[in-house]
Amino acid sequence: MRQVTLLGPLDGVDLAAEIAAFGVDGPVALVTAGWEEGERNDAEVDRRLGGGSRNLNLYGRRLDILESDPGYADAERLLRTQIDELRELYLLRLRHALAGLEVIRRRFAEAQRRPGSELDAAIDAVRMLDETHTSSIAAAYEHFYAQNPPHERPAITRHREEVAAIVAGCAAIAIAGGHVGVLNDCLHLGHLAALIEERPLLAWSSGCVAVSERIVVIDDDDPAGRPDEIYDIGIGVARGMVALPAATSRLHAHDPDRLAVLARRCAPSVCVLLDPGDRLELRSGRLADLTSVGVVAEDGQVLRGAQAA
């Protein structure tokens, strides 16, 4: 049974104790690809993990692949452009759909009536947009991998084999935070999902987001004013949940109406707030213990402790 522990942004957490709690013995395979150019600046996190961790260097490997296989790099750039275009259209439609939903919600509030089927229909429209966008991204990836099978690219194969060999000698895997998009790209390219299969996983901050099925991004401080969005598809090791790290600093208003919409958009997955000090356990990829995190209920209330469970 695979063990997964997810943490909020690190804040004095004893990482070595978390690894020890898995009950395994051996070095930890470390992923710090989300730190991008700072990937190898990992001495501090290695110390906190108890020392002897082995950095998989996924960011550096990705750069090497793009450098040594220009054909793949060009194809991937086209894929990125395609996904960026999909995302732009999705955000355009999403803004309008959410604005419409807000108007309906306000109208019910002004009339002091309980939201009815009109609101459900408006939320369904947003859910449909989310689903369509997710499917479009998945189709783009599928087409890309069909056209550019990674196992036929020597540079990718070599790096994947090296990564697999390192992980084979490790007892657990730890994934740090940073840039969730970069991290996600590196996890996919390194084919980490398959390697995580039989090993305990400790992830924190955006590491929790990238190992989920969907990467949902929220940020009230975004200068571009982008709404809560499905950004990408994660590696899907943690299922049935949407990880929202650093939620307290990213959600200023804690507006229950908005959180309710978010919860209903993500359902049946559970929106899990992972602030510093929060901790979530999964067994066989499913939520096992919700008592140490915040959970967004469908009425927009943030539940904690026994209520969350």
């Binding site: 940073g178 975004d222 982008r226």
Partner: peptide, 19 residues
């Protein structure tokens, strides 16, 4: 400039989480 450029060239700050 932040309002204009931040809207027209959306940045990736929202994709970056601590540690």
């Amino acid at each position: 400039l932040l309002d204009g450029l931040g809207w027209l060239f959306p940045g990736e700050a929202r994709l970056i989480y601590p540690g």
